[in-house]
Nucleic acid binder design. Structure first.
Lengths: 204, 204
DNA sequence: TCCTGTGAACAGATTCACAGCC
DNA sequence: GGCTGTGAATCTGTTCACAGGA
């Protein structure tokens, strides 16, 4: 395989492949084909093969992909072969829902701390984590945490984002309905459920 | 303007423009330029103009777009000029967070009901809504509801989706980490926060 | 001069067809 | 026969340059 720039769209699909494989790990043969994956995600199979081929040729012609090997390769491609620590800011309903969510595990993501500014919440437990005072957010600097989830109202999200960037955070998942200004080296993904819902009527 | 197919990417950006405008409604002049919008969203201004031009030419050269008119036109393009009713399935932490979220308003989206299967929750209130028994979900058939949000575990999401489709739902926002099989005429958007987070390390 | 509207050039992503190996 | 890997063709979306009106 010659070097090619990897499309962003490919990167977005890789975690979906990983989950699809987890769904099907009960495949008795230990192998899975590009078509198996494609059917589950409603895409076509050359797409799956092309995506995977950007990272090497680890399938077997006539047989498919060995499941454990494929998982390992996708994790490696996404840099998820080491556990990635994340910090959660905001312990409202959304934040606590996320801290209890088990779906991060298959990606090797680990929510290591949760912060809030409400005195009522600080010190309380959600799952295994104790909610910490947001004014102590700088602590994360020493803990090799590269990811953050912002699950808080929009009004002081920028302020928190600035602190996170200072603490060396490299990627932010922003669930607050506002646009964050960050240095170019920091990657921000924004999810706004209202935006996603508002697009649906167009297609009806 | 001649007829052209409207890119999906354009449709995704329109609600963002709408929110950007809402942010800036305090613009004293009553006008806003493509550059104002572009700067806020970190995109470039010809993109904004091209997107808007698919739906007609409602700007004024030298001046920009009249804010109220622009809002009206974007709402119309997205079919949000009438209130779109949505039903929420799942009254866990995520579901109740959504039912209390005020951000749907600017899009004319109205959460009209919330359902759950837990006897503990049925009958309780979240905000202004009373949680209804999921076994009565068919009620929505008579109420001109075209949208649904699935905020529930993956295990019986497909079953609920089937009922929703039978009830005439045209668009589903799926927050459960599973792929839904629905007829082609039904549009499904899936949001998986773990997937979004798992993509970030690649870019670090 | 300022800013919109838009065809044309360009860049990015998907699909396809098929060679190659099990 | 079955399934992968991949260049080439196609399709989709973005950027640019500039004409033209306020």
């Amino acid at each position: 395989m010659r070097y090619q720039k990897i499309p962003n769209e490919t990167i977005k699909r890789l975690p979906m492949y990983l989950r699809a494989i987890s769904f099907m790990s009960n495949h008795d043969s230990g192998f899975i084909s590009s078509r198996d994956i494609a059917d589950l995600l409603n895409i076509n199979s050359p797409q799956v093969r092309k995506d995977l081929s950007y990272f090497g040729a680890f399938g077997t012609r006539g047989t498919g992909y060995q499941i454990d090997e494929l998982k390992k390769q996708i994790r490696k491609a996404l840099k998820l072969d080491v556990t990635q620590k994340a910090v959660l800011v905001g312990a409202g309903k959304l934040g606590s829902a996320l801290s209890l969510y088990q779906g991060f595990k298959i990606y090797g993501l680990d929510i290591t701390a949760i912060y809030d500014n409400s005195p009522k919440k600080i010190g309380k437990k959600v799952g295994l984590l104790t909610i910490k005072d947001i004014s102590t957010l700088q602590q994360i600097k020493n803990n090799d945490i590269k990811l953050a989830i912002l699950a808080m109202p929009a009004d002081n999200a920028q302020e928190i984002a600035d602190i996170l960037v200072k603490c060396g955070i490299k990627g932010i998942l922003n669930l607050a309905p506002c646009y964050l200004k960050v240095p170019k080296k920091v990657k921000v993904t924004m999810i706004d459920i209202a935006v996603e819902l508002s697009v649906l009527p167009f297609y009806t």
